[in-house]
């Protein structure tokens, strides 16, 4: 490999330090034996043990996971439907308005989304809890799903659906048997995006969460206001770990899929 020039080396180092130094510090201090966050007193995993005994945190983590799974699944269904209509229905009355309204929440400040949802839930007399968080997260995540899926649908060959209809499928069968399997990767990445968005949302969740259900970001945020504890560092380290494993395995899966396709194509050329 060619050696990098000193300029490139310095830029890369500075860049990575800027990005990852805060996280490294957090991870390191999660193994600190001292209760004081800023003083190093030797290696210890006691904060992790303590965390496991902290019911409040575990409850919040469980709520967060439930919210993320349910809301991202709902958002994927709704977002895919919206994307399908946008791309497929052609020019119907009010199309521009419809697409504009789907994308608007993307640029809407979260505070406003959260506040308006809060007003809605109060207005219709819905008790705030895990259900309202799920609804709120579905609302804002479906826009992201719809953007991801519609960009795939635009390049989708319409003739494939027509062929399915021609061969005896109803509209719904054509979608289920032909369109969906082909756009599945986009739908899955839409789901992953929605899942991550829900996982780390603080603002909207804090507007729509009630005393009966609190998500992890809210819990961490409120705990930190009373002072950073090593326990929070441990929790954050676990979250970093989960996200890292998720991202790496997702990219490995997609890389393997593309490698296999390449190999198949080469095999086809040879014969």
């Amino acid at each position: 490999m060619k050696r990098m020039s000193w300029f490139n080396t310095v830029s890369i180092t500075l860049g990575f330090v800027f990005l990852y130094l805060p996280m490294v510090i957090l991870v390191v201090y999660s193994f600190n034996a001292s209760k004081l966050v800023t003083v190093w007193a030797g290696f210890s995993t006691k904060w992790y043990v303590e965390l496991m005994g902290n019911e409040a945190f575990l409850d919040a983590a469980w709520v967060t996971v439930k919210v993320a799974v349910l809301s991202s699944t709902l958002a994927t269904v709704l977002g895919t439907m919206a994307a399908y209509v946008l791309v497929r229905a052609g020019r119907f009355h009010g199309r521009t308005l419809f697409s504009g309204m789907i994308y608007a929440p993307l640029v809407m400040p979260e505070v406003i989304t959260g506040l308006s949802l809060l007003l809605l839930f109060i207005g219709i007399g819905l008790d705030r809890g895990i259900f309202t968080i799920i609804l709120a997260h579905t609302t804002f995540a479906m826009c992201y799903v719809s953007v991801v899926v519609s960009s795939r649908l635009v390049s989708f060959d319409r003739a494939l659906e027509e062929a399915a209809l021609d061969l005896g499928c109803t509209q719904f069968q054509a979608f289920r048997l032909v369109t969906l399997p082909i756009i599945a990767p986009a739908v899955i990445s839409g789901w992953l995006l929605a899942f991550t968005l829900s996982l780390d949302d603080l603002v909207i969740a804090s507007f729509t969460a009630g005393p009966s259900a609190t998500t992890l970001p809210i819990k961490i945020f409120s705990a930190v206001r009373l002072g950073v504890s090593p326990e929070i560092n441990a929790l954050s380290t676990i979250m970093i770990g989960i996200v890292t494993v998720g991202v790496i395995s997702a990219s490995l899966i997609s890389k393997r899929a593309s490698l296999r396709q390449q190999a198949e194509e080469q095999a086809a050329v040879r014969t």
Binding site: E162, A163, A164, D166, L167, G168, T170
Partner: peptide
């Protein structure tokens, strides 16, 4: 009469073969 209920089949210009199905499954699809 919608396309799926016509005793008419079409061979598309782009062929429109289903990329996720094998040759066998493509032919069996209808």
């Amino acid at each position: 009469v919608p396309p799926n209920l016509r005793a008419v089949n079409m061979m598309f210009q782009s062929y429109a073969l289903f990329p996720h199905l094998s040759v066998w499954d493509n032919i069996a699809f209808g």
